[in-house]
Design a protein around this nucleic acid. Structure first.
Length: 282
DNA sequence: CAGCTACCCTGGCCGC
DNA sequence: TGCGGCCAGGGTAGCT
C-alpha cells in the first residue's frame, strides 16, 4: 500500500530513470483505470499522443506529470497508485504485458507500464488551462504536507479540538495531513507513545508535537530506505523498499514489542487494523 | 457537519 | 487438492 514515502520513491524513479519521456502510443488495457476523461480511453490516448512527460511532482499520495508538446505546455497527467498500482520501466518488447497491466505508454525504444493487481489505481488527463484540482478532485481535500511549516502542533491542536474520533483515524484523514496511510500512522503513534484509540481532542499540545516529530522522522527514514518492504510496493526496477525491517508495530499483532517485550495488540479502528503496544503507548 | 459504513478489486491465506 | 470465506486497504459516495 504505497503511502507518501513509496509515492515519493516512485516520483524520484520517474525523474531519474525515465526522465523526459516522449509518448508515441498509449494503450489502455482496462478503461476503468482512466478516471479522466472518464469512460473515454480513446480521448485519453488521443490527448497524450505526441506529448512528452516533462517532470513529476507529488502531492499527498498523488503524482502529477507536466505534459509538453513541441516544448510547449500541453496539460498534465495525474496518477494515484492506490493499493497495488506500480510503474514498470522497460525496453520495448522486453516482456509481454501481464494480465494486470492497465495502461501502456510507448516511446520508440521504451515502455512505461502501469500495472495494478487490484485495479484501484487511477490516471487523469488534465487539459491545458483547466485547473488541476478541477479534474483530480481529491487534491482539493488534501491537508498540508507533513514536511511543511503549516503542519505543526498548533495546527493539529486547532483542527482536533473537541474531536472525539480516535487519533489513529485522524492521522488517516487526508484532509488533516496528506500522505499518511496505515503503516506510518501505526509506526508514528508507537514512536510518540500514544494509543491509537485516544480521542483526538484530548491529546495535549506537547504530545501532538511528539506525534508530528515522530511522523516526520518515520517518513524521512522510509524515504531514505526507498519505501517499505511491506505490501506489493515495487519501485520502477521491480525491487521493494527496505523500511519493513525496522517496523516497530505494523502487522506485528501477537508478537513481542521490540522495545519492551509486551505482546502487541491488533484492533480495528475506522475499519482499518491498528497495531500497538499496551505498555509503550498510553 | 462530523463521522461512520459500504464499496470498489483480487491474490493470498486459513480452515475444513 | 479444492473450495468457501475472509482479509488487506485509499478514497469516495452516501448515510446517520
Amino acid at each position: 500500500m504505497p503511502e507518501l514515502p513509496e509515492v515519493e520513491t516512485v516520483r524520484r524513479g520517474l525523474e531519474l530513470q525515465v526522465g523526459r519521456f516522449p509518448i508515441g502510443e498509449t494503450i489502455v488495457c482496462r478503461s476503468r483505470a482512466v478516471a479522466a476523461p472518464k469512460g473515454d480511453p480513446d480521448g485519453f490516448t488521443a490527448a497524450l499522443r505526441g506529448c512528452e512527460l516533462a517532470g513529476w511532482r507529488r502531492r499527498g499520495k498523488y503524482l502529477v506529470a507536466k505534459l509538453e508538446r513541441d516544448g510547449a505546455p500541453a496539460g498534465e497527467l495525474g496518477v494515484h497508485l492506490r493499493m497495488t498500482g506500480q510503474f514498470q520501466w522497460l525496453q520495448r518488447e522486453e516482456r509481454p504485458p501481464c494480465p494486470h497491466t492497465r495502461v501502456r505508454f510507448l516511446s520508440e525504444k521504451h515502455e512505461l507500464r502501469f500495472v495494478d493487481v487490484r485495479s484501484f489505481g487511477e490516471l487523469w488527463f488534465v487539459p491545458l488551462g483547466t485547473p488541476t484540482e478541477q479534474v483530480i478532485t481529491g487534491l482539493t481535500r488534501l491537508g498540508p504536507e507533513p514536511f511543511s511549516d503549516a503542519f505543526n502542533a498548533n495546527y493539529l491542536r486547532q483542527r482536533l479540538k473537541g474531536s472525539s474520533r480516535p487519533i489513529k483515524n485522524a492521522l488517516l484523514d487526508q484532509a488533516l495531513v496528506a500522505g499518511v496511510g496505515n503503516i506510518y500512522a501505526d509506526e508514528s503513534l508507537f514512536m510518540a507513545g500514544i494509543r491509537p484509540h485516544t480521542p483526538s481532542g484530548s491529546v495535549s499540545a506537547a504530545r501532538l508535537e511528539k506525534l508530528r516529530a515522530a511522523l516526520v522522522k518515520v517518513l524521512e527514514l522510509s524515504i531514505g530506505a526507498g519505501g517499505t518492504t511491506f505490501s506489493d510496493f515495487r519501485d520502477l526496477t521491480g525491487t521493494n523498499g527496505n523500511y519493513g525491517g525496522q517496523a516497530w508495530v505494523y502487522r506485528r499483532g501477537g508478537e513481542p514489542c521490540r522495545q519492551c517485550g509486551t505482546i502487541l495488540r491488533r484492533d480495528t479502528l475506522g475499519g482499518r487494523s491498528s497495531h500497538w503496544c499496551p505498555s509503550c503507548q498510553r
